[in-house]
Structure formats: C-alpha cells, structure tokens
Amino acid sequence: MSALHIRREAAQNALNTLLKQPLATLMTIFALAIVLALPVGLFAALNNLQQLLGQWRDQAQISLFIHQDATEQDIQQLQKQLQGSTGVVNVRYVGKEAALKTFEKNAGMTAAIKILGENPLPASFIVELNPLSESPAALQAQVQKWARQPGVASAQSDLHWVARLQAILALGKRAVWILAIMLAVGAILVMGNTIRLHIAQRRDEIDIASLVGATRAFIRRPFLYQGLIQGAIAGILAWIIIAITIAILQGPVDRLATLYGTRFQLLGLTGLEGLILIIISAILGWLGSRLAVGQHLDHTFS
C-alpha cells in the first residue's frame, strides 16, 4: 500500500490542488513566512547584539596587581595562565614605571610622588574579558582564583555590568522564545485552517474514496503533503525575508559603526540555520494539516 508510486501520486495530487488556487496558496505561504520571519529575525537580531556586546571587552576589564616581591618567573607564569584562560581576549602588562607615568599624566601629582622618592605604584596585569563568554559567577570565581596565584597582591574587578548585561540578554532570549512558540502555534493554526477549507471543498471526493475502500492514510496523504510543501516554501521565503532585511539594515549599521570608529558586519542565518528553518517550517505545515485532517476526516461516514 505504501508503494512509491502512491506517494508520488499523492504529492502530485497535492501540487495540483495548490496550483489550482495559486492566489490562495500564495497568501497562505506569505502569511506563514511572515509569522516565521518575525521570531527568527528577532533571534538573528539578538545574535547580532550579542556579537556586538562581545566586542565591548574594555567594559569587562580586570586589574591584577602584582606583589612587590614577585619574581620574574611568577610574572611570566601568571601571564601564560591568564592568556590561556577562557573568555580572556587580551592581557596587557603594565610595569611600575608605566603605571607611574600614567598616574602622573592623569592625576598631575608629580610633586607629591617626587616627595616620596620611591615609586609606590605596583605593576599590574590588565585582563580584558569577553563579557558574554561565561556567567558572571564563573567570571568572578576565575578572578578570585587569579587573585590567589603566587605573585598577585590583589585583584580589582567590576563585574556588575557584566551581570546586568547578561541578565538583559537572557530576558531578551526568553521573550523571543515565548514569541516563537506562540507564533509557531499561530503557523500551525493558519495551516490547519487552510487545509480545513481544502477538506471541505473536497468532501465529495473524500466520501467517495472512502466508499470504494480508501484507507485513512490514503485520504490524508495529499493534505499532509500540501501542508508540508507550503510549510517548506514558507520557510524558504522567511529566510529570504530575513536576508533582505539584513541587507537593508547593513547600510545604516555601517554608518553608525563608522561614527564609533569601528566596523560591524550584521550576521544573517548560516546555511545550516536556514535549512533548520525550512525543516521546522515544513514540520509546522505538516502538523497544521495533520490537525485539520485528524478533526475533519472523522466526520466522513467511514
């Protein structure tokens, strides 16, 4: 019963039905595509935001002050350890002399220092972190670990900003997920309603097929394929909508980035992500028609 040619005929049947009413088919596909493009577009936007914030590494900067008695070896070992740690983007060594120079320049207290006769400022490592690489707690734990290393006198860090940033991003992600789930349900209902109308239009055909011994699977199959096909096409269309949106936004983003003296390339969907979008969309279409078929085929006299 499930020979290949039966599936092929069902697919042909589904395609014919869709092509017979091109306007209705297109409207359904566009509606689905928009419903899908919205959450996926927001995911892409969050992804870009994350990318951008990850570049604000000077916002998550940690100073490790070196002990006066630290040996050259201690310092070198520490530097190696810092560079090898997760989330570390850059490690900069600031020697006593350099620290003094900066201090003098910034504070203008040359006279006061001169009176002391000796340079009281410690050497330090400035560690720049990607603020999104780890949870704030994990980053904090890492900083504390560094502070206990031989040669380290103390650590100074302000990770409140990181915690706040991550909390906001987590909130954004959660909100987009909720929206995505609601819109997925919406997509299923749109498809379900479309298929319901198709079923109503083809009531006679369904009844007669059932009368001459068609199985439920046989009757259902063309409708399921209709949902699958429309869902997949809607997925492709949603991908295109997102790509066009990103292309349109890249210009203004370039101008904005130039004002801040940086460059920023907006990220679209990767090939794999696009493929997943199409598959999910096809599955939603299938689920929608499955829902309609499950409800409305049972009213047949079989």
């Binding site: 019963m1 040619h5 005929e9 001459v212 199985t215």
Partner: peptide
C-alpha cells in the same frame, strides 16, 4: 480509476 487508485494499482 479512483477505485483502483485507492488500492495502489499501478498507472
């Protein structure tokens, strides 16, 4: 043909 199609008879 419908009668035969539902039983999966070939074209």
């Amino acid at each position: 043909a419908l009668t035969l199609q539902v039983s999966g008879v070939s074209g």
